[in-house]
Design a protein around this nucleic acid. Sequence first.
DNA 1: GTCTATAGCAGGATAGAC
DNA 2: GTCTATCCTGCTATAGAC
Lengths: 223, 223
Amino acid sequence: MALKIRNSNNHKNELTRDRLLDEAEDLFSQRGYHAVSVREITKAAESNLAAVNYHFGNKQNLYLEVFRSRWLPRASQIQQSFKQSLKNSGNPTPTMVVQSFARAFLEGPMSADERTRHFKLISGELVQPTEAFELVVEQVFRPLFGKFLEDLRKVMPDTVDEKQMILNVFSILSMVLYFNFARPLITTFVGGQEHNDIETRLVDHIVQFSLSGVGSVKEEVGK
Amino acid sequence: MALKIRNSNNHKNELTRDRLLDEAEDLFSQRGYHAVSVREITKAAESNLAAVNYHFGNKQNLYLEVFRSRWLPRASQIQQSFKQSLKNSGNPTPTMVVQSFARAFLEGPMSADERTRHFKLISGELVQPTEAFELVVEQVFRPLFGKFLEDLRKVMPDTVDEKQMILNVFSILSMVLYFNFARPLITTFVGGQEHNDIETRLVDHIVQFSLSGVGSVKEEVGK
DNA sequence: GTCTATAGCAGGATAGAC
DNA sequence: GTCTATCCTGCTATAGAC
């Protein structure tokens, strides 16, 4: 899957080190750390087997460098996108806060492939944390989570207490991550067809669901 | 983590094949398929290196058998729990449907360790699908998802259209999976302390959030 | 900075004795 | 059904020529 368009042409002009990082990210995101060999990475990068050790010392370090030099910057982009979108929206409402957040994750400047790589990498860390997890939590999740919580609290009534707010944020985050992360599952249900506008649809849904749940309920009516 | 209590004593009375499955499940769930070696599994099961090949043919098959003979039955338990809980609740309301669903996943008869193993295994498949994924989707997710969708539709107004309902179900499922699956992340935020009653708290939250979102909003008020 | 060659080892798998 | 011994492949990592 994901046609390799970027091969020969781009490779010529890119430094070995960068090509290694690109291919490593691609392969690690697709199949995880342990299922990918250094041989495979160097071959994909059209470089020598020894290149990984020369440029990064060892495999583990290459993996970490993928997070440091590729993943973190993209996470910053998402964060920036969230802040900007919120700033541009003027007087913020709950809708705007949630919408900005969801958009930053599901839409934004990244290409679909890039986003897929991005979220597959972090999904791997969520399931099987390595050293990179710590890095990512401290530098990305904690500040982002904090800001979102703060922004949301500002526009919510004071009747909503702190713990409830935290769980609310987790719930929204769960959807945002999940709709990126569980694509295989979603695809098997919704099917591959559907409108390409799916991202917008998802954002709308997340906003709506976050603000009012499944919709107007007819409680106590039964059957 | 997860003290090994079940070692020597239980091992004596259990068949090699079962011990292999137990230990395989434990190790695969903790670190994933590729990071675990057959040597490690047989050692943990206090059996011989050749035992895996004798009983299961190869490593991949052992992994699949873990899903077939350990994971699927537990998934059935969850499914049963959902159905029972719903039946017992008499005239169903949206609250009851969502609550039954969330409870089946987050509470229920499994031990905490068992549930952790269960969800770490499926998380791995969601991120890096193997042959087991197909099995699990067809035999568990599709029917469960279908039933939940159906039950929920019965108690929702007809104004909610089909696609919206599907997204609603995904959103609820996302929370339910996420609160099991992203424990490392949640733990780093909420901290390890807190009440042991956390499961009940989470179920309450999911129900509340699913039905009415973040809570009564003060829209258009700003700041 | 890139290459070849190879060390050195861990992995899955099997043959064959018991 | 369990064991030992062993094969063989594939891996990471490094030494050293260019």
